[in-house]
Amino acid sequence: MQYEWQFHLIYNYWPVFARGALATLEITLGATVLGLLIGLPVGVMRTARSPWLRLPFSIYVEFFRATPALVQIVWLYYCFPILFGFKLDATATVIVALGIHSGAYIAEIVRAGINAVDRGQFMAARAIGMPYIKMLRRIILPQAIEKMIPPFINEFANLMKLSTLGSMIAVYELLQESNNLIATIYRPLEVYTFLALVFFVITFPWIWLSRRLENRMRQSA
């Protein structure tokens, strides 16, 4: 089959993609900040000694990792208002839902980072009589954060792609803007192809940075 590509048609609509990209970035940044605010304390609590203290945080992490982000968004948008009588607008819904979703993954990154610190560091801190929280703050986390940065950047790139789920509830991010454009110019092949390229351009640098940092860490270790 011979298809005649007409990418020049898209050229005139570049502001549509720029607008979409800005919305995607806004969702990604918002969800990342929220994910960090949730993930950092939850990840720390997941390393607590008491299993009872760990339990609620483990349930949160496992539940949100084992359910699709799309279902979480749709649930927050349609079910939450019915149950609690309080409705967020579509963009805020996506940010909150993805923030809670990525919080679970960031918690795992934090936990893995803490566990990757040599056990001897914990012992030395305890042996001088340091309280647990102070030990985490002064001794363990400063050494864990370095290990957490590459997977964290990776998670940021993931969120960028997950933000397309916003189109399901008509958030004007990149995918939604593209769908609308198709309704105007009837060129789905060009639009979706170009959309993929836009995503690659805004996502790949983060993935590349993450890998680079990881390699550099491995060399210095």
Binding site: G120, M123, A124, A125, A127, I128, G129
Partner: peptide, 20 residues
Amino acid sequence: INRQRARIGMVFQNFNLFGH
């Protein structure tokens, strides 16, 4: 417990100095 530990010094086989 921490007050007791603070009165007892400990030296480990692998030193365990704070690396950062």
